[in-house]
């Protein structure tokens, strides 16, 4: 399916996601992309076999987490946090940067620009 995603303001993100949740959509995934000096996060929802996408453009700081609406978003948000260095606000369970990468791995390896440094020895909780 060729993607036609709708842009959403960061402020409205949670209410939009809530609408999908109440409409009986299931959460499929989030995808993070590098733009020039920003990031684009695509949220994908599905009802039956149909997909719907929304996206936000962010500079990587204080992105509201949707893990309190869809608890399964937790794994993918932790992954994005680690691989791209994006800060999520209100992450239900924060792995502190030890979800995918080890102590000596490169920091935010998939991002073109560096946002935050991983605090060493983060707790796995």
């Amino acid at each position: 399916m060729i993607v036609n995603s709708r842009e959403v303001e960061i402020g409205n993100l949670k209410s939009e996601v809530k609408k999908y949740h109440d409409g009986g959509y299931r959460f499929v995934t989030e995808t993070c992309l590098n733009l020039e000096d920003k990031f684009k996060i695509i949220y994908t929802f599905a009802i039956g076999y149909d997909l719907e996408n929304i996206h936000i453009i962010t500079d990587g700081k204080n992105v509201p987490s949707v893990s309190d609406i869809y608890s399964c978003a937790l794994a993918v948000e932790n992954e994005i946090k680690e691989l791209f260095g994006i800060e999520f606000d209100g992450l239900a369970v924060d792995f502190g940067g030890n979800f995918m990468l080890g102590e000596s791995s490169p920091i935010s390896p998939q991002a073109d620009i560096e946002i935050i440094r991983r605090e060493k020895g983060g707790k796995n909780e």
């Binding site: 499929v28 995934t29 608890s71 399964c72 794994a75 993918v76």
Partner: peptide
């Protein structure tokens, strides 16, 4: 789920794979 973003060259801009086990972990 495969997400692919291409920029018109022979290299892809972004490839992202959402695998089934990743969805089953929760």
């Amino acid at each position: 789920v495969y997400y692919i973003k291409s920029n018109g060259t022979k290299f892809l801009d972004r490839l992202r794979i959402r695998t089934p086990t990743f969805a089953n972990i929760p």
